[in-house]
Amino acid sequence: MREILSDLERWRRQGRRVALARVIDLEGSGPRLPGATMAVADDGEVAGSVSGGCVEGAVVVEALEVLESNDRRLVSFGYSDDEAFAVGLTCGGTIHLFIEPLDW
């Protein structure tokens, strides 16, 4: 969260709603450790990352749904084989994310 703090504060000053997605657990090989954080503003602007770029697109969709419904959710991404457009990690690991509105 440290790296994206200034984005979070700017968005809040501008009155934008924000969802936070944090890596909470990791199985096997994965690029980012628990605590890696990505933030998504209600207009789709993004700061930070939770993987090496493999799942960020899907996380934006989940985060916007979280802002829409104002609930929170656990989301996991596992191994993706070579099927076109399948969302997942190519490195063979599984990451578990917690996505929530920044309303606390």
Binding site: V18, L102, D103
Partner: peptide
Amino acid sequence: TPESGTATPIFDAVA
């Protein structure tokens, strides 16, 4: 209701 009007005491402390 712009979020700047919402109190976020924990986040403010974290920041």
